[in-house]
């Protein structure tokens, strides 16, 4: 497969008319949208609207029954999550999905796994190739640790960290893969105001410094309207609004969905 290089502002990922159902339950029906390179794209909607299912489709965890996903100009066939990861799609989870038994450093190092090539035998012997590779990646990971300001918890097992920090470590793990497209599933859920502000700053910085395209799901309307370039609104698996924040805010269907119809 050959992927074209996408310039900033062009379409990085396009979803066309996808539908996903589990038995009789329709999670997503006939939704199309696109993500431009370099933008922050938000997906919002009431609970159960199909937002997380949409992310799961994008990173290959679910396979939509209908419709196509085009990534970097190439129509994508059904693929496994690790194949999507190899193409530069990283994500974080709604419920923190860190490796609880490992330290912060090791967790972020796992994000580099696709770039580490030393085999079983050289890893066993350690000295030489494996050590050199490990140190190179350690250097990169330390940059991320500095960026996210989590130097103090480098060696702490992540199971012991407070929730807000766990979310930050998870963002670090996703960043370690140097993704082209970063999917964030409710990065600010359950955080207090200060933690939310920190997280917003990190998201904006990632977008700004690394040029990473970000697609995020979030319930905090203030945050979404402030940081995202474009917003898509889902309700009951269907798309009811799409556009820049101001447009979405003025959309009558969206207002109905959030406040309840019939007003």
């Amino acid at each position: 497969m050959t992927y074209q290089d996408v310039k900033p502002g062009e379409v990085l990922l396009a979803v066309d008319n996808i539908s996903l159902s589990f038995g009789a339950v329709r999670a997503i029906s006939d939704v199309s949208f696109d993500i431009n390179k370099g933008e922050i794209r938000a997906i919002i909607g009431p609970n159960g609207a199909g937002k997380t299912s949409m992310l799961n489709c994008i990173n290959g965890f679910y396979h939509p029954q209908q419709g196509t996903i085009t990534y970097k100009g190439q129509k994508r066939s059904a693929m496994k999550p690790y194949e999507a990861a190899a193409q530069g799609i990283a994500r974080t989870f709604q419920n923190v999905a860190l490796f609880k038994g490992m330290s912060t450093l090791d967790n972020i190092m796992t994000g580099r796994n696709l770039k580490m090539k030393s085999g079983i035998f050289s890893s066993m012997l350690w000295y030489g190739g494996a050590q050199k590779e490990e140190l190179e990646h350690r250097r990169y990971v330390e940059d991320i640790i500095d960026f996210l300001e989590i130097q103090a918890i480098r060696k702490t097992p992540v199971g012991r960290l407070p929730y807000g920090l766990q979310k930050r470590v998870e963002l670090g793990r996703a960043l370690a893969a140097e993704p082209e497209l970063l999917l964030l599933d409710e990065p600010m859920a359950g955080m207090n105001l200060e933690e939310k502000e920190d997280m917003c700053r990190f998201i904006l910085d990632v977008n700004d410094e690394f040029g990473t395209t970000i697609c995020l799901i979030e319930h905090d309307m203030g945050v979404v309207m402030d940081i995202s370039d474009r917003v898509m609104v889902l309700d009951y698996g269907g798309k009811i609004g799409d556009g820049v924040p101001a447009e979405v805010r003025a959309n009558q269907q969206v207002i109905d969905a959030y406040l309840g119809g019939g007003h």
């Binding site: 990861a85 994500r91 490796f99 796992t110 796994n113 079983i120 893969a177």
Partner: peptide, 24 residues
């Protein structure tokens, strides 16, 4: 090494491990 980290990742949360690129 990164191989050992892959094992621990699969142990602690296999779905997340697959999503960040470890082949189960």
């Amino acid at each position: 090494s990164h191989i050992g980290r892959g094992w621990m990742a699969i142990r602690d949360m296999d779905i997340a491990a697959e999503i960040i690129g470890f082949r189960p």
